[in-house]
Design a protein around this nucleic acid. Structure first.
Length: 401
RNA sequence: GCGCCGGUCGUAUAGUGGCAAUUACAUGAGACUGUAAAUCUCACGGCCUUUGGCCUUCGGUGGUUCGAGUCCACCCCGGCGCA
């Protein structure tokens, strides 16, 4: 059986498209926002709550699940979805991002975006990961124990995790890395992509013909902030026999859209494209109009837990003093569980009282907001209203920010 | 009445001659993009020409000292013990 079937149902303006991905665990209407559940749980939410707010797909993480509770345990539990009681489609990240966050990006000041990287004059911290041609050696952030990932190892772990879609092992670079290093890292990522693919093919060849569980492997385009490298990476990765493609690495905020357009014009049209780790509402519009089909991002849940909530009129920090006696919902126009049943004052109280329900209500709302925003954009493509919907959304969203 | 101990930034504390004064919590604000994140950063007496300066602060009033939250005297308040 084919692991994944992608159908484009409608093309919009520019590179925008609406489609449908069939997986062994159900269909995904695209564009879609993938909800992040790193350690086989969407933090603060039960799978029923995750489903209820409109989630189509959940993403788990290779690095975290390998360390805890161990990928073999997840395999023995029946795979990621079964283990966490999520019966819909799943995907796993390859651990490539941790090569970045534990290595070059070590410390909290460094992100994937050029604009948000602080000059940071602090002393060098000891990195937890070092890269060589074969793979990455790293120490666990939990207990300091030593481990090693190679493309082959990442494939094996992800086979055990058994998500419907998974990613080739790659290297995510710092936005501040010099061009010379970006070239080196990109070429290494290409070789790792080839090795990931070869290892996966070998694994598939060993499966019984009627095996139900087939996983779709996605290759990852890198290239940092350099358009010619992005182009080169898209050509190289795009030619490989992946079921879909991820676009990863560092970006500069200003030309995110241009970079995506460049890459997506090159990637095969008939395969789904996932923009890794993005993003904010503005980024989602940008990604969709430039040809991306799926997105995942920790922001809705992380911001939620930290008290920042999305509203149609921009983000608010619910812990601000001005919300203590605000008896209106977080967002007047929101249909989520939190907004239909609770006030800003109540959510503010939960945060101030450090009650666990704060994280649940905030995550519910933020995920609902983002998931439904992408749903609305999908609908807009169908109705040829993309530009209007975007203009209207951004005008209101930016009004107070 | 006598003796002992104690009164420091909203609260709890550190500080026994150089201090606008420690730490925690609380408070105020900010950050967060393939989750080392229910985390992190900053502010928290006032003012200014803000890698510095000035003023006002450690129960009250006086005193000793170049200099007092710190030492002394008395007073006020609280706790404990003895009457």
């Amino acid at each position: 059986m084919i692991p994944l079937e992608f159908t484009i149902t409608k093309k919009g303006k520019g590179l925008a498209r609406m489609g449908r991905i069939e997986t062994p665990h159900g269909a995904i209407e695209t564009p879609a926002f993938v909800v992040v559940g790193t350690k086989a749980t969407v933090k603060a939410l039960t799978p029923e709550q995750v489903k209820e707010l409109g989630t189509q797909v959940v993403l788990g993480n290779t690095y975290h699940l390998y360390l805890e509770p161990g990928d073999e345990l997840v395999r023995d539990a029946g795979g990621l979805g079964k283990f966490m009681h999520w019966d819909g489609p799943t995907m796993t990240d390859s651990g490539g991002f941790q090569v970045f966050s534990l290595g070059a990006g070590f410390g909290r000041g460094n992100t994937k975006f050029e604009a948000t990287v602080a000059p940071e004059g602090g002393e060098e911290q000891e990195r937890l990961a070092t890269i060589d041609e074969e793979g990455v050696s790293f120490r666990s952030h939990k207990d300091g124990s030593s481990h090693r990932f190679t493309p082959e190892k990442s494939m094996e772990i992800q086979h055990n995790l058994a998500a419907d879609m998974f990613f080739a092992f790659d290297e995510c670079t710092l936005p501040t890395a010099p061009r010379e290093y970006q070239v080196e890292a990109m070429e290494r990522t290409h070789r790792w992509a080839q090795r990931s693919l070869a290892h996966h093919k070998k694994f598939e060849a060993g499966l019984p013909a009627e095996a139900e569980r087939r996983q779709a492997l996605f290759g990852i385009v890198q290239g940092g902030r350099f358009s010619d490298l992005r182009e080169q990476s898209a050509r190289t990765i795009g030619k490989m026999a992946f079921a879909g493609f991820g676009i990863g690495g560092s970006f500069s905020k200003e030309d995110l859209g241009d970079t995506l357009a460049l890459v997506n014009k090159i990637l095969p049209e008939e395969k789904p494209r996932h923009l890794l780790g993005i993003g904010e509402p503005e980024d989602l519009f940008l990604g969709i109009q430039n040809g991306c089909d799926m997105f995942d991002c920790v922001l809705p849940t992380r911001l939620g837990r930290n008290g920042t909530l999305y509203t149609a009129r921009g983000k608010i920090n619910i812990t601000n003093a001005k919300y203590v006696r605000d008896f209106s919902p977080i967002d007047e126009d929101c249909g989520c569980y939190t907004c239909t049943n609770f006030t800003r004052a109540y959510v503010a109280h939960l945060f101030r009282a450090k009650e666990m329900l704060a994280a649940t209500l905030a995550s519910t709302h933020n995920l609902y907001f983002i998931v439904h925003l992408v749903d609305d954009i999908r609908q807009a493509i169908l109705e040829d209203q993309f530009d209007d919907v975007r203009a209207r959304f951004l005008a209101a969203y930016r009004a107070n920010n």
